[in-house]
Amino acid sequence: MALLLGAKGEDLLTRRGTAEFVEQVRQGLYARMAHLSAGDEELLLLGVRSTLEEELAAEQRCREDFSRALDETDQAEDVQELILVQDRLRAMAVDHFRRRGSVTAFHLMRTVALDRITGAALRITVSQMAVGGVGLPAGRWCWMALGSAGRGEVGRFDACDFLLVHEGNEAGSSFVGFSGRGAGLLERLGIRSRAGITPASSSWRGSLAEWRQRIAVRALEGGGDLDWLIRLADLRLVAGDPSLAAEMVNVVRSALTAQIDPLREIARRTAMMQSGFDFFGRLRVERGMFNLSLYGIGPIVANVRIMTVRFDIQETATTERIRGLLYGGRIDVELAERLLRAWHCFCRHAIQREIAGENGILVDVEEFGEDAEHELHASLEAVGSLQKIVYSSISGQG
Results as ranks from 00 to 15, higher is better:
282 R>K: 15
298 G>E: 10
300 I>C: 03
318 T>I: 14
311 F>D: 01
287 R>Q: 10
282 R>V: 12
297 I>A: 12
294 L>W: 06
318 T>R: 00
305 R>A: 04
305 R>Q: 13
283 L>P: 13
318 T>S: 07
298 G>I: 09
287 R>F: 14
320 E>K: 12
283 L>F: 10
286 E>D: 12
288 G>C: 08
315 E>I: 01
299 P>Y: 04
313 I>D: 01
292 L>G: 06
306 I>T: 08
291 N>L: 10
320 E>N: 13
299 P>I: 02
305 R>S: 07
297 I>L: 13
297 I>F: 10
298 G>P: 02
302 A>D: 11
302 A>S: 10
292 L>H: 02
295 Y>Q: 10
286 E>L: 08
302 A>Y: 06
313 I>Q: 09
311 F>P: 00
294 L>E: 12
313 I>L: 11
308 T>D: 09
317 A>R: 06
305 R>G: 05
309 V>T: 15
284 R>L: 15
316 T>P: 01
314 Q>G: 15
307 M>N: 00
313 I>T: 00
309 V>S: 05
317 A>H: 05
283 L>V: 10
299 P>Q: 06
300 I>R: 03
315 E>Q: 15
307 M>W: 00
319 T>K: 09
284 R>M: 12
315 E>S: 15
295 Y>A: 12
283 L>H: 05
301 V>K: 09
291 N>R: 14
290 F>H: 02
305 R>I: 00
290 F>S: 05
307 M>Y: 00
313 I>F: 00
287 R>V: 05
296 G>R: 06
305 R>D: 05
312 D>L: 04
282 R>N: 13
293 S>V: 08
286 E>A: 09
285 V>H: 02
306 I>R: 01
296 G>W: 01
290 F>I: 02
285 V>A: 06
307 M>S: 11
317 A>L: 05
319 T>Y: 01
285 V>Y: 04
292 L>T: 10
288 G>A: 06
314 Q>V: 12
320 E>D: 12
300 I>V: 14
296 G>K: 04
312 D>V: 07
314 Q>T: 15
315 E>D: 15
310 R>F: 07
304 V>H: 01
282 R>T: 14
313 I>G: 00
306 I>Q: 02
312 D>A: 13
304 V>E: 06
